[in-house]
Amino acid sequence: MTHIDPEALVASLRKLRTTSPATGIVHQLERAVDVVNSLFGYSGAGLMFAEEGKDLRYLVATDDPGRSLEGAQLHLGQGPCISAFEENCAVTSNDVCVDPRWPKLADLLHPEVRAVAGVPVRLGSEPVGTLNVYQATVYQWDESDIQALYGYADVIEQLLAAAMAAEEKSALAEQLQYALDYRVVIERAIGYLMGKHDLTATQAFTGLRKQARDSRRRVADLAAELLGEGAGEMR
C-alpha cells in the first residue's frame, strides 16, 4: 500500500510531459552523482556500473582523482568498490594507500585519493553497480557516513527504476552500454585537450563537461567531435 494518489500523480506527470524534453538516463545519473557529491561535502563521488553478466566499469566520476580511483580498480580487478559490488555490501577503507587488502592500488591512484567508501546500487535485490565517494585525506568512516551513502544509493536506485519503467529494458541497456563504451572516447579527448592547451586532466574534463552542458550535448558526442577535429588538424 502506498500513500500516493495515482490519479493526481498521472495528471501531474501528463502536465510535466508536455514541457519536459526527454533526457537520457546517463545524463540523469551524472546529475544525480553531482547532487550527491555536493551534499556529502566529500572530495568526490562516482558511479560504477556492470554490463549484464559482465564486470564493473565506471560510468560517472566527478573529477580526475575519482576517475583514477575507478580506473585503477578496473585495471587491477580489485579494490573497495569492486568488493562492494561483489559482496553486495558497504566496503570502506580509511586509507586506501596503505590498505593491505589492495596492496597494488596505491601506485595507480591519484595522490588526492586516500579514504574510500562504496555501497552497492541494486535493482531488486541484485547489485547492478556501486556508488563511491572518496576523501583526499585519511578519514575514519563511521556508521552515519555509510547510512547516508546507502540513502543516496536508494535514490539512485529509484531513478534507475523510473527509467526502467519509462523505457524498454533493452533501450535502457543500450544507453548505458553506449555511455560505458564512450568513456574511452572521453578519456582520449581529455588527453587531447591536456596536450593542446596545457591543462591538467581535471581542467580538461571540467571544460569539456561545461561546454557540453552549455550546448546541451552529451559529453561523449562533444569528445568524439573534438577528436575528429584534432585528427583533421594533424593531417
Binding site: Q28, V35, A162
Partner: peptide
C-alpha cells in the same frame, strides 16, 4: 533544495513513459 532536484529527475523520467500520454 538539492534533493528537490533529484525528485524532479525522477518525475521527468516517469513523465516520458507512454501510458500517461493523452488528455484526462
Amino acid at each position: 533544495e538539492r534533493l528537490g532536484e533529484l525528485m524532479v529527475m525522477v518525475l521527468q523520467t516517469l513523465a516520458n513513459r507512454s501510458p500517461i500520454s493523452g488528455q484526462s
